[in-house]
Amino acid sequence: MNVDFPLRQTDRATSPADRAKILSDPGFGRYFTDHMASARWTPDAGWHDHRVAALRPYSLHPGTAVLHYAQEIFEGLKAYRHADGSVWLFRPELNARRFRDSARRLALPDLDEHAFLASVEAVVRADEPWVPDHGGEESLYLRPYMFASEAFLGMRPAEEVVYAVIASPAGPYFASGVIGVTLWISTVYTRAAVGGTGPAKCGGNYAGSLAAQIEAREHGCDQVMYLDGAEVRWLEESGTMNVFLVTADGELVTPMLGTILEGVTRASVLELATDHGLRAIERQIGLDELRDGCRSGGITEAFAVGTAAVITPIVGFKGDGYEFAVGDNRPGKTTLAVREHILDIQYGRVPDKRGWLRRVV
Rank of each mutant, 00 (worst) to 15 (best):
Arg191Phe: 06
Pro144Asp: 07
Ser186Trp: 02
Ala164Gln: 12
Thr197Arg: 03
Phe147Glu: 02
Asp222Leu: 02
Asp249Gly: 13
Glu231Ala: 15
Ala151Gly: 09
Ile166Trp: 01
Val165Met: 03
Gly154Cys: 12
Pro172Phe: 05
Gly177Ala: 11
Arg156His: 15
Arg233Pro: 08
Cys221Asn: 04
Thr240His: 02
Cys221Val: 11
Ala193Arg: 03
Asp222Met: 01
Val246Asp: 03
Gln223His: 06
Gly180Tyr: 06
Cys202Ser: 09
Glu138Gly: 04
Thr197Lys: 10
Phe147Gly: 01
Thr254Glu: 09
Asp228Lys: 03
Arg143Asn: 07
Gly198Asn: 05
Ala248Pro: 08
Gly220Asp: 09
Trp234Leu: 09
Phe174Cys: 11
Val194Ile: 11
Pro255Leu: 07
Pro157Gln: 15
Phe174Ala: 04
Glu159Arg: 14
Val253Thr: 06
Ser238Leu: 04
Glu236Ile: 01
Glu237His: 01
Thr187Phe: 04
Pro255Val: 12
Met256Arg: 07
Ala230Gln: 09
Tyr173Gln: 15
Val165Asp: 00
Ala192Gly: 15
Phe147Ala: 00
Gly171Ser: 07
Trp234Cys: 11
Tyr226Trp: 05
Ala216Val: 04
Leu235Ile: 14
Leu235Phe: 14
Arg217Ala: 02
Ser186Val: 12
Gln223Tyr: 01
Pro169Glu: 03
Leu140Gly: 03
Gly208Gln: 04
Gly220Pro: 09
Ile179Val: 15
Thr259Leu: 06
Ile214Gln: 14
Val181Leu: 10
Ala175Met: 15
Tyr226Gly: 07
Gly220His: 11
Glu138Ile: 05
Gly239Pro: 00
Thr190Asn: 06
Ser209His: 06
Glu251Leu: 14
Arg217Phe: 01
Tyr226Lys: 10
Glu138Met: 07
Ala170Trp: 00
Ile260Leu: 14
Ile214Lys: 10
Ala192Thr: 14
Asp249Leu: 14
Tyr145Asn: 15
Gly258Gln: 10
Arg233Ala: 04
Pro199Gly: 08
Arg143Leu: 08
Met225Tyr: 00
Ala211Thr: 13
Gly171Thr: 04
Ala164Phe: 08
Glu159Leu: 12
Gly208Phe: 02
Ser176Lys: 15
Ser139Lys: 05
Thr240Met: 05
Phe147Thr: 02
Gln213Leu: 06
Thr187Gln: 12
Ala211Val: 06
Thr259Phe: 00
Cys221Tyr: 03
Phe152Asn: 06
Ile179Pro: 13
Ser139Asn: 14
Gly171His: 03
Ala175Glu: 15
Phe152Thr: 06
Leu142Trp: 01
Tyr141Trp: 10
Cys202Trp: 04
Cys202Asn: 08
Glu150Asn: 11
Gly220Ile: 11
Gly177Cys: 12
Ile166Leu: 05
Glu215His: 11
Leu235Met: 14
Leu210Lys: 05
Tyr189Asn: 10
Leu252Pro: 02
Val188Phe: 01
Asp228Phe: 01
Val188Ile: 07
Ala148Leu: 13
Ser149Lys: 14
Gly195Ser: 12
Gly180Thr: 10
Val253Lys: 02
Met256His: 13
Ala212Thr: 05
Pro169Ile: 09
Ala167His: 04
Ala230Arg: 10
